[in-house]
Design a binder for these strands. Structure first.
Lengths: 291, 291
DNA sequence: CGAAGAGTTGAAGCTCGTCAATAATCGTGG
DNA sequence: CCACGATTATTGACGAGCTTCAACTCTTCG
């Protein structure tokens, strides 16, 4: 836990562009937010090649095959993607948003906070992930959603989105399966935080997020993945403190399991890491897991 | 955690009736499982009055009003309710059951186990709760479900159940809302285990389960509720050990917050308990909360 | 370069876990 | 109705994992 009210230095989504915060006084700071993350080693291409226009297509196809018309419909969704900045709130706790929120680039996270500012991260949203309104109309969020890194989001009006889901059964089914996957992840996280020690919790999270990133093709040629998760966020994810996260990471590094530096995560020994964490990715329900 | 392979001394549901275990050698032990729990104090009526035939109706109405035809359809579901015995497995981890499982009496729970026998309880099923197959056909469980106490279950064939949901929109919506409630509970549990201390975790769980039981009318005249949850189960729910649960309960009792004895839980000071746990029942999404 | 954030480290302490033994309770059979 | 065996609850002593506090270093970015 980290005793700061989440989201730290949070900004309102609606007031994103012009609003400047004391913490980020520079005027074109937001550039950073949707720039491709810099390579881990100078010169190394960050992503294998040009990305498909709509990561949602890639993501849904991890769960259910889409027809060409369905993929086209999703591509047409577009709208104007907005940039998101680190710690910017996408959905407030208690809000009933009028739109569905699609992550195009970067990471976001769901969270809950305690009165004294402790924060629990409830899940991560990576490119292609949707932050849906639960059941038309009725959907008050019982948690918040915020950007973890800079990136891009698309806001899709609820009407348009439900229309799309009802019109294209493949999309609908893909989303339903993705939603089940999310619930399975929640259960696994509860297991993680409730029953495993610090080393295992971190190892499990690394296995999971790397599987998800691989599934949507977000792997660098050298096998590393973009991982903009600070140790403070790791702490709030695993129910530990930053200090203990730091020490546990040191251990994992010493044991040759991972390499984590400059927002680049490399899993050096997938087998041992999974064994330590008792990780079995079946619960993710991904059709095709890279490798 | 409790280092025993969950479900402890588990029995197969299919082989329920005749199967006897070394641990329970007596031949009519199963009597206990579907008997009404005995009164906390001799002579006290356990339930206010005769219960409605189908607790599912009561439960769904906590989320969405049902038409008379819909309630009638649920009543007709019936089938032959089977008795369940404590620790009997209702759905195995990894199973793809052919029926939906409705709890009629008693408590059940979802769980996951580690290799070394530690167990995390992922949620409780109380009368009226359904253990649905997730998405027709595809539904392999990534966790197990077992009876916590003795009770009764009804098995509803998937086809009949999906038919019912598609035929009656009120039922369908009620179930969808109930499912959202379950997910919200999962998130709240993650928060609980990740960010709160032992006292708070227990307090929060008591607040939650008592709210759910009140919502379906399972309250005794004296305000107590049937609570067949052993300290070992509480430990596996909260990610603590039985010893520490025991000490924390002692503290809660000393502070005059709860009374817990012989499977009867009374919340003596709801306000202070909720305050300690930072409990706000909104996430349960119950339309009418008793009181 | 300088400031701010993120990561790292040490020392001390507290919450919670482990081990182990005793007491209370429950269900069953005599 | 009481006694017995098994499970569950309770307690003490001790130890470990994790937290807290606080300082320092490294990285990032204007």
């Amino acid at each position: 836990m980290t005793p700061v009210c989440a989201p730290r230095h949070g900004e309102d989504f609606a007031a994103a562009g012009p609003l400047l915060r004391d913490r980020q006084p520079a005027s074109h700071h937001c550039d950073r937010s949707y720039r491709q993350p810099r390579p881990a080693t100078p010169g190394a291409a960050f992503f294998p090649g040009p990305r498909p226009a709509n990561p949602l297509v890639t993501k849904l196809q991890c769960f259910h095959p889409l027809g060409p018309d369905e993929a086209a419909a999703l591509d047409d969704l577009g709208g104007d993607p907005a940039t998101m900045q680190p710690e910017q709130v996408l959905v407030h706790d208690g809000e009933a948003p009028a739109s569905v929120c699609l992550i195009l680039e970067g990471f976001a996270y769901r969270y809950k906070s305690t009165a004294d500012g402790r924060r629990q991260i409830l899940g991560y949203l990576i490119p292609g992930d949707l932050c849906e309104v639960e059941l038309r109309g009725k959907g008050r969020f019982d948690h918040g959603v915020a950007a973890l890194s800079g990136g891009k989001v698309a806001r899709i009006p609820i009407a348009a989105w439900t229309g799309l889901r009802s019109q294209f059964p493949g999309i609908d089914r893909g989303c339903a399966l993705a939603s089940l996957s999310e619930r399975s992840i929640l259960r696994e996280w509860l297991m993680n935080v409730g029953q495993r020690n610090a080393l295992q919790r971190l190892a499990h999270f690394f296995c999971e997020i790397s599987a998800r990133l691989r599934a949507i093709g977000h792997v660098n040629p050298d096998g590393s993945v973009y991982f903009p998760v600070s140790q403070a966020a790791l702490a709030d994810t695993t129910g530990l403190t930053t200090v203990h996260v730091n020490r546990s990471l040191k251990q994992l590094r010493k044991d040759g399991m991972i390499h984590l530096r400059r927002q680049q995560l490399t899993i050096l020994d997938r087998h041992r890491l999974a064994q330590l964490a008792e990780f079995d990715g079946d619960y993710l329900r991904l059709k095709r897991l890279a490798e």
